[in-house]
Structure formats: structure tokens, C-alpha cells
């Protein structure tokens, strides 16, 4: 969507997907994360640092909540009443959920964050003025603000040589967040375009999904009905733009799919599969 489009359709833009959305989508990238396979090992998170030029902020700034981990593993203890957590820890890989009706978008005063025809919640660094309204409005707390310029502290020579040239290094005053590895999407789309074909399922693999030792993360296009991710969403009866759906036959079927904060009607693009524990 161009700036022109954003300005002309500003009011449509504020309507969520429940009112029909505002896009003719080309793709709708989405994920399915099986929490029963997530072991909380941090491979995805570190892969994200490597792929996306994430700054290392150091101990003090981390303490102030300024860490830039686009993909973070949250760890919860569920059995707080017990002497020991007998069912282990609950790990949650959390990153931008690329909401279909994202709460961050309408509050941006300069339309630096907007929805792309790929169904991605884009962040245009050059346009960002650092108001931080978006991160305040994000229910998932997955937007990260550059309070400092990290270029010199995070990549002392020769570390800067590792930086991925396909993605910018963000500077002070700019908001950033998970992009679903848009640079990888872009590369694959360019390749498909050059070969006069459409993007195949499994062609785009974000860094986190590629690294994950247990293959807990599946990525794909929900507009492609044959894609693995589409089938997973369908199997678990999770649908775009449909909220708090009473799942059919919940008691009889493996319907573990859910989206976090579904009740907020933000239409996240990440479906999680419930963690399973055998009570013995």
C-alpha cells in the first residue's frame, strides 16, 4: 500500500478485518507454532539476531527493557501452587503476530506502520519518527524501540561484516519488530517473478523456522489452500477474521489451535498449538 493509498483509505484502514478488511491480498503469510514441540532452546531467537541485524544492547539496557529480541522465548510456570513445577516449564516463542487488524497501525501518526498486500504489518524505518504510539498500543509487546544508536557498540569491527545486506540496520529513534523475514519473502518473490511462476509452499522459510531443531514452527501462505500452514489452520479450525469461535466437537478432535488474545479481535497471523502434557 502506498502512502497515497493510506491517505485515501484512512477510514477503511481503521476498520478491522471483521468489516471486510481493506485489501486485495496477494499473500497472507502466517505461522503455526506447535507449543508441544517448543523446547525453549533459543535457537529461533539467536537465528533471528543473525538474520535481522538485531543489536546487542548489553546488561544495563536489557534491564531497562530495551533488548531488541524480535523473537523471544517467554517462560511461564503454571503450577505455582505446587512445591515443584511437575509439568515442566511453559515456553512461548513470541514475536510480532502480524495482526490482520493490527492495533499498532491506526495510531501511527505518520503511517510508518501499515498493512502490506502480503498481509504483513510493515514498519518503514525511514518514515518512523519514533512516537512509540505503536508499541504502546501493541497487546503483545513485540515492538522494540531504538533508544540509542547501536551501530558502533553492537558491531565493533570486524563484526559489522556479518550484517545482512538485505535488511537495514536501524538507528536511534526508530521502532522495529519481527517482519516474518520479509527480506527472505522478497527474495523468493523476486525469484518467482523472474521465473514467471507463483511462490511455492515451503519456499519461504523465516530464520526462526529454519533453525528450530524440533520443527515446531511452520510458515506459509494461508491464501494458498494447499499450503501446510493453511491445512494446519483448517484442521484446528482457526480462521482469519473469525473470533472466539466455538470450536466444533472440541471434545473429540485434536483442535489445539488458538491465537493469543483472540478476544481482542486483532486477527493475529500466528496460530499456536496447545502444549500437551500427559498427567500420570
Amino acid at each position: 500500500m502506498s502512502l497515497d493509498n493510506i491517505l485515501n483509505h484512512w477510514s477503511d484502514y481503521r476498520k478491522g478485518a471483521e468489516e471486510g478488511g481493506h485489501h486485495d491480498y496477494e499473500h497472507r503469510w502466517a505461522m503455526a507454532i506447535n507449543l508441544d514441540l517448543c523446547i525453549g532452546c533459543n535457537a529461533c531467537s539467536t537465528a533471528c539476531y543473525a538474520e535481522n541485524n538485531l543489536a546487542v544492547v548489553g546488561k544495563e539496557k536489557f534491564e531497562r527493557g530495551q533488548a531488541m529480541h524480535w523473537m523471544r522465548i517467554e517462560r511461564y510456570w503454571d503450577q505455582q501452587e505446587l512445591e515443584h513445577p511437575e509439568q515442566g516449564a511453559s515456553f512461548l516463542p513470541m514475536m510480532c503476530q502480524q495482526c490482520g487488524a493490527a492495533t499498532c497501525e491506526p495510531v501511527c501518526p505518520v503511517a510508518a506502520t501499515y498493512h502490506t498486500p502480503d498481509g504483513l504489518n510493515a514498519q518503514v524505518y525511514n518514515r518512523c519518527i519514533g512516537s512509540r504510539y505503536c508499541s504502546n498500543n501493541c497487546p503483545f509487546r513485540v515492538r522494540y524501540f531504538n533508544f540509542y544508536s547501536y551501530y558502533e557498540s553492537s558491531w565493533p569491527e570486524p563484526m559489522e561484516q556479518q550484517l545482512n545486506p538485505d535488511i537495514s540496520v536501524r538507528d536511534k529513534g526508530v521502532m522495529e519488530k519481527c517482519t516474518f523475514c520479509v527480506q527472505r519473502i522478497r527474495t523468493v518473490k523476486d525469484k518467482a517473478f523472474m521465473e514467471d511462476r507463483s511462490v511455492q509452499d515451503g519456499e519461504v522459510v523465516p530464520a526462526c523456522a529454519q533453525a528450530c531443531p524440533t520443527s515446531a514452527i511452520v510458515f506459509g501462505d494461508t491464501m494458498d489452500e494447499g499450503s501446510v500452514v493453511s491445512k494446519l489452520w483448517k484442521k484446528h479450525q482457526v480462521e482469519r477474521g473469525v473470533y472466539q469461535k466455538t470450536k466444533l466437537a472440541k471434545k473429540d478432535a485434536d483442535l489445539r489451535g488458538y491465537r493469543i488474545f483472540e478476544e481482542l479481535n486483532v486477527d493475529p497471523s500466528v496460530m499456536y498449538l496447545e502444549r500437551v502434557r500427559e498427567d500420570i
Partner: peptide, 9 residues
């Protein structure tokens, strides 16, 4: 394309 993210990376 007119999409910002086509060119801005």
C-alpha cells in the same frame, strides 16, 4: 508496485 515495503527494507 506502490507498496512501501517493496523497496524499503
Amino acid at each position: 508496485p506502490g507498496d512501501c515495503w517493496k523497496c524499503h527494507k
